[in-house]
Simulated scan of single mutants.
Amino acid sequence: MTRRLAPYVFVGPAMLLLATFGVFPILVAGLVSLTNMNLGGLARWSNIKWVGLSNYAKLFRDPDFWQALWNTVFFVGLGVPCVVLLSLGVALLLNRSQGPFFRALRAFYFVPAITGIVAISLVWSYLYNTQFGLLNYLLSLVGVKPVQWLSDPTLAKFSVGLVAVWRGTGLNIIILLAALQGIPRDYYEAAALDGANGWQRTRFVTVPLLSYALFFVTVTTLIGWLQFFDEPFVLTDGGPLGHTTSVSLFIYKEGFRGSQFGYASAGSLVLFVIIAAVTLLQLRLRRRDLE
């Protein structure tokens, strides 16, 4: 009997934490999304009323929500391929390089992942500054007029996305580098004996053996970009004209600035469904590839 209960005793605390901080908040958000809860409702519970699905109906009629959703799709389409491919390329280069300089370089690439987003955004905001920013100064040396990096609606998306790509590659590089170092050298020696060149060894040996690590990196990166918040919040606050407002930033503004907690909860549930659906689709496609 004790042996049968042992697994549940060890798993129980982790499941309790998951239920408390993972499942329970989702259920609460689902209930709140069916009410008109706002800042006044927190002070006086009698002001809270059930409104059913009206928050969701209002959400899908809100042009600001649709703009935020399409902005998020743009950021995902821009950021996920760039982060994954750049992380893979840098990891391959670092794996082939030896010596103390390259070991220090590995640590250098990881620095953005452990640096606070506020510090990163402050540095990049100075780089992007129209009047005295370093980027515009360098462009002025070759006769280019100052660029509105964070003021132009189209260019601001790419500027904010660039900061997120730079910050997001560090951890993925470490993960892929660890996976690369776990590949036995015998496979490369066998491929070399068969006449495979460097590109062919990478294409037919390295990439297939990295499939699990690449899948993990892709899934986590995609989820992170669907929740994109930090960079547009600190750099542009969603501007100009809402062109860098992501769904997460839209939810934050409606909930914590507009005090419309029921409406913001509806948005968070929609975002949760989108992330869950995309993740399940990736898992389904991955399972089909393994069959």
Rank of each mutant, 00 (worst) to 15 (best):
Y128D: 02
F158H: 07
N129S: 14
L162F: 15
N136T: 04
Y109P: 00
L135W: 12
Y137S: 03
L134N: 06
L155Y: 08
W166E: 00
L138V: 11
L171Y: 12
V123H: 06
G116T: 07
V111L: 14
V163K: 00
L138Q: 06
Y128V: 01
G116R: 11
K145M: 13
G143R: 00
T130D: 06
R167E: 11
V144L: 04
A156N: 06
Y137P: 03
Y128N: 00
W166V: 12
T130F: 04
I117Y: 10
V118G: 08
Q131S: 15
S121H: 02
L135Y: 13
F110W: 04
T115N: 03
L135D: 10
K145S: 15
A156C: 11
V142F: 07
L150G: 09
F158N: 01
L162P: 09
Q148M: 11
V163D: 04
K157A: 07
N129G: 10
S121K: 01
I117T: 12
I117S: 13
S121D: 05
S159R: 03
L135S: 04
L134P: 09
G133E: 11
G161M: 08
S140E: 10
L141D: 02
P153T: 01
T130L: 09
T115L: 10
G161D: 06
A113P: 05
G133T: 09
V144R: 04
G143C: 02
Q148D: 14
L122G: 14
A113S: 15
S159T: 07
N136E: 08
L127F: 15
S140N: 05
I114W: 02
F108H: 01
V111M: 13
L138R: 05
A119M: 10
S125C: 04
L171P: 00
G161N: 10
N172E: 11
V163Q: 03
L127W: 12
L155T: 15
P146K: 09
K157Q: 15
T115G: 05
V165A: 01
F132Y: 12
S159P: 06
A164S: 13
P146A: 05
L150D: 09
V118I: 15
V111Q: 06
L127N: 05
L138C: 06
G161K: 08
G133A: 10
A156E: 11
K145D: 15
L171N: 05
S125F: 05
Y109G: 01
G133F: 09
Q148K: 14
A164C: 10
L134A: 15
F132L: 13
Y128L: 04
V142L: 10
F108K: 01
L141N: 01
W149L: 01
Y137A: 02
G170P: 00
W166A: 03
Y126F: 14
I114S: 01
